[in-house]
C-alpha cells in the first residue's frame, strides 16, 4: 500500500504530515522523493546504513570513429549536442539520457557512460521505520531519474509513505503516480487554496484518489471551506495554526511526538485512508466484473 503526500505550494507541511504518518504506523516505509531538498531525515533521524550512487548516462564520442556526419545532433530533441566539425560538444545538463544518439550513430562512435546524478540513501529509524531518500547533486537539473530510483524502494508488503516535491510538474507527477492514495497538504491562505486547486487537477489527471489535510488551519478563511464544500472534497485532518507546533518543528520535533491529541488524530487518519483504499479496490473489482459479464 502506497500513500503519497503532496502539495502544490511549498512549505505547507508535507514532510511534517508524511513523517507523522510514518511514525504512527508500525513497520512503515518512508520514502523521501523531494530529492532537490529532502528534509524527512531531519524529522525522522534515521541511521543511514547505505549510500549508493545513482547515475545518468551521457554520450561519449570516439573521435577515431566519428566523421562529424551530424546524425546525433539531428536525433537529439534536447539540443544537448553541437557539431563543431572538429568536436561534438555535449551540454550534459541538457541531456535526458534517452539513448537515441548512440542508437542512430552510423559509425558506432558513441558509447554511453554513467555520470553520478545523486545519491540514494537507505537507513532505519529508532522505532523501526525503513527510511529511503534521494539527494540530488548540486547543479544537476533533472530530478526525475533519481526519483524513479528512490521510488523503486517501495515495499508492497508494507505501508509506504512517500514525501513528494512541491509543485505540479514532472517531479511531482513521477512521485505521486501509481499511489493508492494521495494526501494533499494545504494551508488556510489564498496561496494555499490556489495551489491546492492546481494539485487537485494533477491527481485527478493521473487517477489517484485523494484527500486534503489543512495545516496551519484558520477557520476564518472561508474561501477554503466554501471551495471544498462546493466540490465535495473531504478534509481528512485539520492541524491548527499554533506557534508551539511551529517552534517544535523548527527543532525537528514532529507534532505527533509532542501532542497526544495530534497523535490520536494521525492514527485515525491512517485508519480512514486504509478503509478508503480498500473500498476503492472493491469498487474497481466490481467494475471489472461487470465489464467481464
Amino acid at each position: 500500500m502506497t500513500i503519497s503526500v503532496a502539495s502544490g505550494k511549498g512549505g505547507t507541511g508535507k514532510t511534517t504530515v508524511a513523517a507523522s504518518l510514518a511514525s504512527v504506523i508500525p513497520q512503515s516505509v518512508y520514502i523521501d522523493c523531494d530529492v532537490e531538498e529532502p528534509n524527512g531525515h531531519l524529522m525522522l533521524q534515521p541511521k543511514f546504513t547505505l549510500e549508493e550512487s545513482v547515475n545518468k548516462l551521457l554520450p561519449e564520442i570516439d573521435y577515431n570513429k566519428c566523421d562529424f556526419c551530424g546524425k546525433c545532433i539531428e536525433v537529439c530533441e534536447f539540443n544537448a549536442l553541437i557539431n563543431l566539425k572538429f568536436e561534438i560538444l555535449l551540454f550534459a545538463e541538457m541531456c535526458h539520457s534517452c539513448g537515441a544518439c548512440e542508437y542512430f550513430c552510423p559509425q558506432n562512435a558513441i558509447t554511453e557512460i554513467p555520470k553520478e546524478l545523486g545519491k540514494l540513501r537507505s537507513g532505519i529509524t529508532e522505532n523501526g521505520i525503513k527510511f529511503y531518500d534521494g539527494l540530488l547533486n548540486i547543479g544537476e537539473a533533472t530530478a526525475v531519474p533519481l526519483i524513479r530510483k528512490v521510488k523503486a524502494k517501495i515495499d508492497n508488503e508494507k505501508i509506504n509513505i512517500i514525501d513528494s516535491p512541491p509543485g505540479t510538474s514532472c517531479s511531482m507527477v513521477e512521485t505521486v503516480k501509481n499511489s493508492d492514495f494521495c494526501l494533499l497538504v494545504t494551508e488556510s491562505t489564498p496561496f494555499g487554496l490556489n495551489d491546492l486547486k492546481l494539485a487537485i487537477d494533477v491527481v485527478k489527471n493521473i487517477n489517484v484518489p485523494f484527500g486534503v489535510v489543512i495545516n496551519k488551519y484558520d477557520e476564518t478563511f472561508e474561501e477554503m471551506e466554501n471551495y471544498l464544500t462546493e466540490n465535495q472534497i473531504e478534509v481528512m485532518l485539520r492541524i491548527p495554526f499554533d506557534r508551539k507546533i511551529a517552534e517544535a518543528y523548527s527543532n525537528g520535533i514532529l507534532p505527533v511526538n509532542n501532542s497526544d491529541k495530534i497523535r490520536r488524530e494521525f492514527i485515525g487518519l491512517i485508519a480512514t485512508i486504509k478503509k478508503k483504499i480498500k473500498s476503492n479496490v472493491t469498487q474497481m473489482t466490481q467494475k471489472k466484473q461487470i465489464f467481464a459479464d
Binding site: 532537490e36 547543479g139 544537476e140 509543485g167
Partner: peptide, 10 residues
C-alpha cells in the same frame, strides 16, 4: 523564484 535547486531554479 521557484523552490528547490533544480532546472527551473537554474
Amino acid at each position: 523564484g521557484p523552490p528547490g535547486i533544480g532546472c527551473p531554479v537554474n
